[in-house]
Computed example of a mutant assay.
Amino acid sequence: MTARTAISLRDARVRHGPLEALHGITLAAVGPGLTVLLGRNGSGRTTTLRALAGTVPLSQGAVVWDGTDVTRVPAYERARRGLCLVPDRQAVFGSLTVRENLELAAPDPAPALDAYPRLAGLLPRRAGTLSGGEQRMLAISRALLARARVVLVDEPAQGMSPAVAARTYELLAALDACVVVAEQRLPPALHGRPVIVYELRRGAVVFSGEAAELRPDRGPDEPGGPGTPRGPARSE
């Protein structure tokens, strides 16, 4: 299947009270394919994901999904249409068991257990008692079972071992969906892959391009480094 722009932000601004968190950013994520939002805490990564999902409103600009303006479509309706958001916190139902969490996404949890065999031994446990890495595995598994058309994940590998983190990115990259993830730095598992990267700083896009264009040998604020502006962000 040929990748095309699946979901995008156009001149998007988001305000949190008197403060503006996104300053008119434009970005486009393809599907199927993997797009990475890079940035430090406070850069606007999480707000960008939430704007795409509809859990925070835009004060200006638009969200376009498959060529249709969905800016005013509520989050629950976007979810019904096939958009799945995995936040960095409270991504599972802590009072339910692992099995119950998975069954909320699909009747048969087998694909999730194939993805993360460790979950098989945790099925009867309440999700709130799992470690941080185990909860991320469960949250990602629910997203895999949902078979969404757009998957938005905030720090997918948080709390995971390097091996499990690499496995997680293999799973996300293999999805027949538009996948957008937010990370503080480009994960090692994605080096060498055909991944589109947007770097955000203080609510603005300062870099857009392929992962191979990033300069890992320089700091984010050095000339030629991953934070160096490369002209306007790519749009459709």
Rank of each mutant, 00 (worst) to 15 (best):
L49D: 05
P109E: 07
Q90C: 06
G121M: 07
V73K: 09
T48P: 12
G39Y: 03
Q135M: 14
P32H: 09
A110F: 04
V92N: 02
A79Y: 03
Q158H: 11
L122T: 00
V30L: 06
R45Y: 06
G67K: 06
A106M: 14
D108T: 12
Q60L: 13
P109D: 09
S43V: 02
G128H: 13
L122R: 04
L37F: 14
R40K: 12
R72C: 01
T129A: 14
I140W: 02
M160F: 11
E134G: 07
T35D: 10
L34C: 08
P111E: 12
E134N: 06
T129V: 09
V70F: 07
E77F: 00
G44R: 04
Q90F: 01
V63K: 11
V150H: 03
R78Y: 07
A163L: 11
V153I: 08
D154C: 04
L102W: 12
S59P: 06
L119P: 04
T48C: 14
T68A: 14
L152S: 05
A28C: 12
A62W: 00
R142S: 02
S141L: 10
R142A: 01
G121D: 15
L83P: 05
P162M: 03
P109F: 10
A75H: 13
T47Y: 05
P32E: 07
A157M: 01
D66A: 14
A143K: 05
V63Q: 11
L38C: 05
A53T: 11
R80W: 09
P57V: 06
D88I: 06
V73R: 13
G61T: 10
P107W: 13
G159A: 12
A112C: 10
A146F: 07
A115M: 11
R50F: 02
A62E: 05
V98P: 02
T129L: 04
A157Q: 00
V153S: 00
V64C: 12
C84R: 13
T68F: 04
T46D: 12
E77L: 14
C84W: 11
P74E: 14
L58Y: 02
D88M: 09
D66R: 15
R126Q: 14
R142L: 01
A139N: 07
P57F: 05
G67Q: 08
S43Q: 04
G121Y: 06
